[in-house]
Amino acid sequence: MVTLGQYLIVSGLLFTIGFAGVLLRRNIIIIFMSLELMLNAANLSLVAFSRFRLGVDGMPNYNAQVFVFFIITVAAAEVAVGLAIIVALYRARQTTHVEDINSLKF
């Protein structure tokens, strides 16, 4: 049988992949996708907790699923605003590269 731990490890791995993407990639769009991976990794953990740690009524803990719903909504809104900013940046600077946006220095 599959255990809670296995779900958590898989989700942790996804979170790590996303985090590594943020750290290592220099393309802002891909960084943004990696951030989505991190959020979804958290969602997977939440749903796993909701299924494995049943509520008092013996059914999944739906509080966690509501939280997942909120996270998905926020993530979608974040993507919309984020892409708008990235488009504005591209219009002004013709780049989506992190290394190109360093006119502000220490």
Partner: peptide, 20 residues
Amino acid sequence: LEAGVKYLILSALSTGFLVY
């Protein structure tokens, strides 16, 4: 805009940590 992009990425990152 640069400030906006930097703020965007790092805030979103912190959101990821918060959620997790």
